[in-house]
């Protein structure tokens, strides 16, 4: 398991909100977009954002960020194991 940071990056204003989605939410999401989990964009489990919410490989993160065009935009990412480099 990668080491968590000493401070919470999520508190920085430039870092969008990351949350781990519940299984039901993930199912709903998959239904909405008619996709398998693997078709989601990915995020490494070593990513500072993923670390901060303690996401494990297989979790799906909901990332809510500010958007220039839409005001607020939501993206979903599948957490994957960073191959141990």
């Amino acid at each position: 398991m990668p080491k968590p940071f000493k401070f919470d990056v999520l508190k920085h204003e430039f870092v969008p909100r990351h949350e781990i989605m519940s299984e039901e939410e993930v199912e709903e999401l998959q239904e909405e977009y008619d996709i398998s989990k693997e078709q989601l964009p990915r995020i490494l489990n070593t990513d500072p954002g993923a670390l901060s919410v303690r996401a494990r490989p297989g979790d799906v993160l909901r990332i809510t960020r500010k958007s220039d065009t839409a005001g607020q935009a939501t993206a979903y990412r599948l957490c994957v194991e960073a191959s141990d480099a």
């Binding site: 977009y33 996709i35 693997e38 078709q39 989601l40 964009p41 958007s67 065009t69 839409a70 935009a73 939501t74 993206a75 979903y76």
Partner: peptide, 13 residues
């Protein structure tokens, strides 16, 4: 392959 790149085109569609 059907992988999502953006959930809504340009975020606002």
């Amino acid at each position: 392959v059907g992988t999502v790149i953006q959930f809504m085109y340009g975020e606002d569609g």
